[in-house]
Amino acid sequence: MVKKVDEHSRNDAFCEKTSTSIWQETPSTTNPYTVSEARCHGYEHLALINNRSYTEVLFLMFQGELPTPEQHQLFEHLLTSLIHPGPRHNACRAAMNAAVSKTHVSHILPLSLNVLSGEQGGSHEVFQAMKYLQNNQQVTPRMGAQALTQAAKILVAQTDEGDIIPAPGFGTFYGSIDNYTQKIADNVFNHCSPGPHLRWAHAMLDGIDEELTLSWRIAGLAGACLLDLGFTPYTGELIFQIACAPGIAAQAAEKSNSPITEMPFLAEENYVIK
């Protein structure tokens, strides 16, 4: 029997101080804990407040440079496209549910964003869609469509229920084409300058057998936009959560003063214990 494990520190060379290239705080002369000037990637924070939009500064924060006019337009369109996942989205339902049951307001958005983090209809589907698009950039859209069609046919044969999602961000939505996401995609193409990932995904979807009713899912569209804007899958998932937060929070706020009966509570006869 081992009585005492020989335990030694690895003596890893941990850094002594945290470093960042995003935000610089210059200490004030009167107190080293307070700030006299703050800069974001070299730009003075106050100058950004007075001269740039929230969207531009958000882009700057993650990318290190201010967006070009084309990037600004696409990012602005994307953020507004994602601003509300819809009151039926599980994250919104969680927010409303918590609001009527009088969950502490501090928890509403964090808990709802946890629900939003899912990999089917949530932020992690965006991460995975971005990975898929990155991995297929060397493949022609036609070949991508063939692979997706083949994968979808296998899934259709194997799956009795639920959506067919042969690649993250691309598939069915409640069993059919996602009409509203298609409208948002058309809007992006009509008003912005699509980059290589949006164009590839659009061309790929054009090559899919119509009978399969595969289309953009919101994660695929968001992922393609975010890649064209220079975001990585990691940062893209974070941006998706930030973008969806306002609609989720608003749904909770609307219910904050409502009684608990303002959200459905399934009747006994509809709750079946097998």
Binding site: N97, V115, S117, G118, E119, Q120, G122, H124
Partner: peptide, 12 residues
């Protein structure tokens, strides 16, 4: 219900 809603979108 909130955890179930999360499970239904395949949240970790």
């Amino acid at each position: 219900q909130i955890a179930a809603l999360a499970g239904s979108v395949k949240t970790r």
